[in-house]
């Protein structure tokens, strides 16, 4: 297990480097500098600005400078918010995104696994078909369609919930964003759970368990749940990425000052260091969480460790 864990950690490092290099190159290959679209500056001032941000150095040197900054946890200064570091901007915005994402993920897991298991146990019934129909709809309809539709219905017409975050406090402001963010994941997880639960339930050891006289609830809880959850566990990586992506839209619609909103604003403002910083931050987060999932997978399913 230790060997497996170490191998996984070692494997994550090149991934991370690759991502950082890719993002860095993309930002620096962009035609036009970050200060181009403002009024034309005298050549010497331009040169001073370039020198201040080390933009006059050769690219490899800039990359190494960026990497060594990263190692110290320094993501550099923001190009647009003078005197602010990218790190502090991320630190301010991330807690909101984290709250939303964690709540959405928890909701998706609970409802998705519950509905998927229930559907697998009632295979072919009306209940099963209704759940799967909902799941297909949930997968098909994008977040930016669900969100305005829910706002229109629940906030504007019925006025049950606040439409956005500006001037609203309390838990009610979380309901719509979290639901919107969770819906597609509920759908995916329900489909995944149903398929894998059906597969597991047809195995011999389940028949043995039933033959021993155990009830359905016990068979599912004690014998079927753990193996059936493996595909769901390996879906966690993509799910986290999807929630982060969805968060970009949800934060826009509900005016939540989170990281997704900062990313889009930074992108539109051409605040390249901020955008680069957020990509690097998200990528590291995802690589780290994937590493956790991998290690967890190895802990649950011994077969994985010796592949």
């Amino acid at each position: 297990m230790l060997r497996y864990t170490l191998l996984r950690i070692l494997g994550a490092i090149p991934t991370l480097l690759l991502v950082i290099a890719l993002a860095f190159l993309m930002v620096h290959a962009a035609p036009g500098g970050p200060f181009d679209d403002e009024r034309v500056l005298p050549a010497d001032i331009e040169a001073n600005i370039q020198a201040h941000y080390h933009l006059d150095e050769p690219l490899p040197q800039q990359f190494l400078r960026y990497l060594s900054g990263l190692l110290r946890g320094d993501l550099g200064p923001s190009y647009r918010y003078h005197g602010r570091s990218v790190g502090s901007l991320i630190g301010e915005a991330f807690p909101y995104s984290l709250q939303l994402g964690a709540m959405a993920m928890a909701l998706a897991l609970v409802i998705g696994i519950g509905a998927g298991t229930a559907a697998a146990l009632r295979q072919g019934t009306v209940f099963d078909k209704v759940v799967m129909g909902f799941a297909m709809t949930g997968i098909s309809i994008p977040v930016f369609v669900i969100a305005p539709a829910l706002v229109l219905l629940l906030a504007v017409k019925l006025q049950w919930l606040p439409a956005g975050w500006s001037g609203v406090t309390g838990m009610s402001r979380y309901v719509l964003p979290v639901t919107t963010l969770a819906l597609p994941q509920i759908a995916y997880i329900a489909r995944l759970t149903r398929a894998s639960m059906m597969d597991v339930l047809s195995r011999d050891f389940i028949r043995t368990a039933y033959a021993q006289g155990l009830g359905t609830a016990t068979v599912v809880r004690v014998h079927a749940m753990k193996p059936a959850m493996l595909p769901v566990l390996s879906y966690m990586g993509p799910a986290i990425a999807a929630i982060l992506t969805g968060s970009v839209v949800v934060e826009q619609i509900f005016a939540i000052p989170g990281l997704g909103e900062s990313f889009v604003r930074g992108a539109l403002n051409r605040d390249y260091t901020l955008v680069l910083g957020i990509v690097v931050f998200y990528a590291s987060l995802i690589v780290f969480l994937n590493l956790l999932v991998d290690i967890l997978y190895g802990a649950i399913d011994p077969r994985v460790r010796y592949r």
């Binding site: 991934t15 986290i240 992506t245 889009v264």
Partner: peptide
């Protein structure tokens, strides 16, 4: 590895930069 990356952020970067 690529499965887990937030590709959409790269695409947004691409769209803004070029």
């Amino acid at each position: 590895t690529l499965y887990a990356l937030p590709f959409i952020f790269f695409v947004i970067l691409l769209m803004v930069a070029f």
